[in-house]
């Protein structure tokens, strides 16, 4: 069982939490504003919960699978033991597509036989495909520049990151963590 203080983005409770805001009006109670999506039919709705509210975890199975490719906004994943393949829609994959390079190991969520959603590892390593060159004089600590990675996702990184380098990204925040030496 979950209580409202366990709520966070991507938690699955029959419904999946798409957006989540913690609020606490002065001297008032903790409120958890959620944008929710019914995982079966995809309908979205909003609700505000109080800390006394409790939730049953979703009665769903997760299976380790590998991301293969995207075609016509259908995302294909494969069970590496049985070679069984399943497809998720653009909508079901959501923001996760920003972090999905070919052959990435992910968890696919099933309701019976039906694939519903995806859980990414917390960190992924992606190659920088577009970056302005580093102007050597620009060594001011804390300055940023935008780069594009192989998934076409754009994010802010330190100025010394160059095209062709691999960087580690936190999939929960979408933020740069560090360069990865291969």
């Amino acid at each position: 069982m979950y209580s409202a203080s366990d709520l966070r983005k991507n938690l699955k409770i029959q419904i999946v939490i798409v957006e989540f805001t913690f609020s606490k009006p002065g001297k008032g109670q903790s409120l958890y504003r959620c944008k929710l999506k019914n995982m079966i039919n995809g309908n979205q709705f909003e609700r505000t919960f109080r800390s006394v509210d409790t939730f049953e975890p979703a009665n769903l199975q997760e299976k380790k699978m590998q991301y293969l490719y995207e075609e016509d906004s259908q995302y294909c994943f494969m069970d590496t033991e049985t070679y069984e393949q399943v497809y998720l829609t653009d909508d079901q994959v959501g923001d996760a597509k920003n972090y999905m390079s070919d052959n990435l190991d992910v968890e696919i969520l099933f309701f019976g036989e039906k694939p519903l959603g995806i859980t990414l590892p917390n960190f992924v390593d992606l190659t920088v495909t577009k970056a302005e060159p580093w102007a050597k004089g620009d060594s001011v600590t804390g300055r940023t520049k935008p780069v594009e990675v192989e998934t076409a996702y754009v994010l802010q990184v330190p100025p010394f990151v160059e095209e062709g380098e691999k960087i580690r990204i936190d999939t929960r925040t979408g933020e740069y963590l560090t360069r990865v030496k291969e």
Binding site: T141, G142, T144, V157, P158, E175, L177, T178
Partner: peptide
């Protein structure tokens, strides 16, 4: 090791 980026980017703030 590379500098802690998360700390470095907060410099101005």
């Amino acid at each position: 090791m590379e500098e802690n980026w998360n700390l470095a980017r907060k410099r101005n703030s």
